[in-house]
Design a protein around this nucleic acid. Structure first.
Length: 117
DNA sequence: TAGCTGACGCCCT
DNA sequence: CAGGGCGCCAGCT
């Protein structure tokens, strides 16, 4: 509910930061691993963001991982959903058109935490 | 203990 | 224009 991220000097867990940013992604918008990683200061840590998503299942709060895609706007993590079609289904429900695992007008729906936050 | 993989990204050839 | 390789950090075997 509260949109304020507590990025205090407590830089505790890298994962927790990722979860918070992902949860702040507005409805009908999508972000990229690199953008989040860059926002957290891990430019080459894009892989870590994806890895964090993998652990997102352990989080009590559902993380909208379906709103996170690679920098190409492709549903690279779709295969990790259960079932995979859920990802494009959720995106489609938010008004995002996905064709062949590719978000149409990705740039239009792109949400950059560095710019927005 | 040390090494490898991983929901990526960017540079070089 | 296309393909291949290296780099980032953390978790798992």
């Amino acid at each position: 509910m509260t949109k304020t991220i507590k990025l205090s000097e407590k830089n505790k867990d890298f994962f927790d930061h990722v979860y918070q940013v992902v949860r702040l992604i507005p409805y009908g918008r999508v972000s990229s691993y690199g953008a989040i990683a860059n926002y957290l200061g891990r430019k080459g840590g894009a892989r870590m963001v994806g890895w964090a998503m993998n652990a997102s299942h352990n989080q009590a709060e559902a993380v909208p991982a379906h709103r996170v895609v690679n920098r190409n706007g492709m549903l690279s993590g779709k295969a990790h959903f259960n079932p995979p079609e859920v990802m494009e289904n959720l995106l489609s429900a938010e008004g995002i058109k996905v064709i062949d695992d590719q978000i149409q007008g990705f740039k239009n729906h792109f949400w950059d935490p560095i710019v927005e936050l």
